[in-house]
């Protein structure tokens, strides 16, 4: 049984994509860059291209990190749902297979200024 209850009980999820007025949630985090205490929550339209997401909200939000200005976006390694993955910058989030509440992770192997002091 999916919940301990007196009789069969079906819950209603609160955060389905239908509740976001045509937009969807996308979570983005930057591995080893823990100045940002948690993954960013973005609420953006699925028609937005990956490039627009990167150059818009993601560039703005990562700004406070000292590595932000040195990111070479063509060399960033990406993960989706914790699996290695290659995005198409020109395609929309939907065409990139980025669904509602997907978690995207970015890695910049040689850029780790604030990582643990050795």
């Amino acid at each position: 049984m999916a919940v301990t209850s007196l009789k069969e009980y079906i819950g209603v999820p609160r955060d389905t994509v239908a509740n976001f007025n045509g937009k969807q949630l996308v979570y983005v985090s930057w591995d080893h860059h823990l100045l940002f205490a948690a993954p960013f929550l973005l609420c953006i339209p699925p028609q937005m291209t990956f490039r627009e997401m990167v150059e818009g909200p993601l560039t703005a939000l990562t700004q406070p990190d000292p590595d932000a200005k040195n990111i070479d976006w063509s060399k960033v390694e990406w993960m989706k749902s914790n699996q290695a993955w290659v995005p198409n910058f020109g395609a929309s989030l939907a065409d990139n297979g980025i669904g509602h509440k997907d978690q995207i992770r970015m890695r910049t192997p040689n850029l780790n200024s604030l990582r643990a002091a050795a």
């Binding site: 999916a2 819950g11 929550l41 609420c43």
Partner: peptide, 22 residues
């Protein structure tokens, strides 16, 4: 163990967008 219970969680940050459009 009890997904039907927790899937109903009202999470305040998503709700800022779903209820107040951010």
């Amino acid at each position: 163990h009890e997904p039907e219970k927790y899937l109903q969680a009202w999470l305040p940050m998503p709700a800022l967008f779903s209820e107040l459009n951010g």
